[in-house]
Write a protein that binds this DNA or RNA. Sequence first.
RNA 1: GCGGAUGUGGCGUAAUUGGCAGCCGCGCCAGACUUAGGAUCUGGUGCCGUGAGGCGUGGGGGUUCGAGUCCCUUCAUCCGCACCA
Length: 927
Amino acid sequence: MEYNFRETEKNWQDYWAKNKTFKAENDSSKPKYYVLDMFPYPSGAGLHVGHPLGYIASDIFARYKRLKGFNVLHPMGYDSFGLPAEQYAIQTGQHPEITTKTNIARYREQLDKIGFSFDWGREVRTSDPSYYKWTQWIFIQLFNSWYNPETNKAENISTLIDKFRNNSLSFGEGRAEAWDNLSEKEQSGLLLEYRLAFLSDTMVNWCPQLGTVLANEEVKDGVSERGGYPVERKLMKQWSLRITAYAERLLNDLEGIDWTESIKEAQRNWIGKSEGTSLKFRIENSDSEIEVFTTRPDTIFGVSFVTLAPEHELVAAVTTAEQKKAVEEYITFAKNRSERERMADVKKITGVFTGGYVLHPFTGKKVPIWIGDYVLAGYGTGAVMAVPGHDSRDYAFAKHFDLPIIEVVAGGDLSKESYDAKEGKLINSDFLNGLEVKDAVKKAIAAIGEKGLGKGKTNFRLRDAIFGRQRYWGEPIPVYYTEDGIPKVLDETELPLILPEVDKYLPTETGEPPLARAKDWKYKGKFEYEYSTMPGWAGSSWYFLRYMDAHNDKEFASRKAIDYWQNVDLYIGGAEHATGHLLYIRFWTKFLYDLGLIPVTEPAKKLINQGMIQGVSSFVYRIGQRVFISKNRIGSKLSEEEMSMINPDEDNLTPLPIHVDVNIVNNNVLDIEAFKNWREEYKNAEFILEDGKYICGSEVEKMSKSKWNVVSPDTMVEQYGADALRLYEMFLGPLELSKPWNTNGISGVSNFMRKLWRLYHNGDTLNISDEAPAKPELKVLHKTIKKIVHDIENFSFNTSVSNFMICVNELTELKCNKRAILEPLAIIIAPYAPHMAEELWKRLGHTESITYAAFPEFREEYLVESAFNYPVSINGKTRFFQEYDLSLSKEDIEKEVLNLEQTQKYLEGKTPKKIIVVHNRIVNIVV
RNA sequence: GCGGAUGUGGCGUAAUUGGCAGCCGCGCCAGACUUAGGAUCUGGUGCCGUGAGGCGUGGGGGUUCGAGUCCCUUCAUCCGCACCA
């Protein structure tokens, strides 16, 4: 009897569910291990074959750790708030909750079929009130906290109020009123400048099509990441999170975690730390100063103009009457240019002279003030000292407007381009002349400090994260407003603030978010709630903690559970979250740590990014309306019969490529019957074939419904079984690599599964011998154990599949049916092919699941050889092989080799210059 | 522009980390068995050459007894960031 994967896999999946085989305990004598996948957003399209890649890898690891005696936490859940469900709701009127539930059910069904060892008892859904209650709770903690730069951590806002009281507000820059004399509104406004969750007027990314603001992380190339709609800058009152307070720690702590270099680098980039100095330029005929930020104070004598961002607050003040009109026109122009336009023509230089001047702090010379939109209002001080000689952007601006270019660092050719390198000697620079750049920087900073013109300063590119979304399907922000408009957070006992029902999922006529439609939705019946909801990333910024204690209704997770599980040992997910989710989850973790709520500062010790699985689209080529030409016949001569199919008068004779469903194409050969039935319009299609077949074209593209290249895991499981799918996804190549899906190859692992089964069976019956194993059999087993352990621990799952194949091939060759070999083999393969492993385990006479069997111990002694077959090479080229006992010394081997007839043949009478003998490796003779 | 990765047969890939390049699989070729099949089994399969042999890890150079692996240089592809002063 052949192995019946359909029945067997179903049986074991039922068994695992019924016996709660993968339930993790929150305390155990075993060491803990936490394996986490990035939980999915349950979209309507269901899972394609690319989604489970990371889940399979993490599942193998989790199962391996269980066999190694660890108490493993391996949970799964759903990131179930989000835009697609809401947009679907807008179109259909269907409540997003219903769509979400349906999608989750579908996801669960698909996941179950693959045989994952998730502890479903800990499932979380971010859209569930019992979950978002705690997301709201964390928001309240953020609101009630500020970042104390002295202790370098978040503290309760009361410690700030104490400071205000004691120092009469001298703590806040430039304020001297007494705290208690301020009105409540003034106090609230002041505190908002410090709270980690705060309301402020900020420039936001406004997306009119989506009707919401977006975080910087959600905007790519000036369009929304979801949907690709244009995004514009707009000043709005918005909730934000003060992630910038954590910039330094987010940067520094990257050192201590085992994440891929590319993710760490992306985060470093995003945080964008840059060290420099601030410097003030006195405005001519005025008491005001323009403050700039520069990383190159050494080039101070190369300043030939100062550029302000169009939004800079001093623009009006420095503009002269003659230039007023031009400046105003320019500002209007800059304002109306969308972010997208501005990015699209980075090369285009625009700007205007204000007519005003500043005085050079060292020479006292007049320096013209310009406005240019290459200077960003949001970074540094929104003003730069332009050094066209040594900054390419200033150079381009100076060239364009014909402004002077001064060389102050020797080494470049300023007639061609600016010299930006930070090496060379200073020239034309008064007291800096002759110094190397590095020393000149130091001396310049010192001089600037002495004159009281500025001081060393660090800037970050990281912006505070805008937190409010003018959307329905998200966590309500637990805030209400008093009659004075003072925002107040709800009391913790009032949580969760349930997402109210609305009649439509659209903004109101007055442009308020959908939540404003909710009937009688008022705090204590009279105060208005905040109508914005939280962004998609809120719920995912702490979910790893909730899994530790998923049903706790008193706390977000009990201290005991958190102290036990600590943080994630292995986190697997896509690299697309590099600067979004993975930054936020680190931020929230650090915040909760500061409050003393959790014992760790990082969410995950190790992170692996699985690659994308791309689709391979297939194409048919249509001529006219109903004739399809095989790929390699395009451009070839057609027979008379073939010609008669085409009507050259009516038909367009250029073959038109059309995506065809990959499920009716095998090895690029089209299933013509299936194709005719695929769509009504192709029922009467005619074909121009090659070798009697229709060959399709193919191309690697993103896997998506519209490209007809989606391969569903269900189809694979149905045809080959879950174990085969698991093995094949791993066999495809290194986990981190992106690769196109090719269904053809799965037959290889499918054959392997059958071979494995046959190893234990003779025809229909189990065929196992209790005889002691022979040495070669033990050698094969232990070689495999060694390799598999090495592979798993290095996350090299592709090579372990290949090693299993080698092992089974060799044991088949040896006709091995010894229990002492096949039992351990079942265990080591169990993480990869758990269903078959369970079935074999049972047939071998075990009554318990294989999940908690003991992983076999590797024994070196079985691999020890007494001799080695040395490759003998002459001048590095392998010529022949010779076996020598391993006890022989190098000298002995050297002598023996030289005496060999074959050696003499290759030496052709010459005397070797040198002989290299590497023990257990190679012999090389140099002639 | 900055940063991160990747280049090996027709294809996906492998190489105990400086020691026999091409493991494992797909595909292909040949054979066996078959009331034909896109099933199964056996063998072969880097390239050139009938052969001895030669050539081969994107290209060029170097270090070394020995380089896919280390160094320099160059090219190509993918991804991330980007007027960040």
